[in-house]
Amino acid sequence: MPLIRNGAVAEDTYVTVADDAALPDGAVIVSLKRFRAERSDLLARNHALGVVLTSDQSPETLGPDLDRLSVVVLEFPKFRDGRPFSWARLLRTRLKFTGEIRARGDFLYDQIAYLKRVGVDAFELPPAITPELFARALSEMTNVYQPSADGRETISALRG
């Protein structure tokens, strides 16, 4: 499964670790549950750390710990579950999270442009989406009507 980061295929330097598996050396991504259970150990490691939020977990629950994370993974259980769009938006706009926001799980080609707009900058592409298609998804709509987390000028601003 290719990882797209900042628009290009990138190497995934993180290992997502199951709740009951031993932590390997290096950068890891863990569930929120494990993060809470082993918080101080995880934060004491000298490695980059990421947390997975399922669609019913708001990033606001991370509180000040958010600053210690390099990655927040937003997991789509089903593409119709649109909560991760709000979580990404909150992370970027309200919580000022500057690390990586990664989309994982069941999302569609047709949602990529939306995800990018709300602040997602890394995508674990489902098998059906090739990197070429990924690039195409971002080119479909030239302009946008509403401000979001991507800083794009809205049509109303372009009208000047």
Partner: peptide
């Protein structure tokens, strides 16, 4: 206009 292809609110 604001609601057209709203990135956050299209999968309510």
């Amino acid at each position: 206009q604001w609601s057209s292809l709203h990135p956050e609110f299209s999968f309510l």
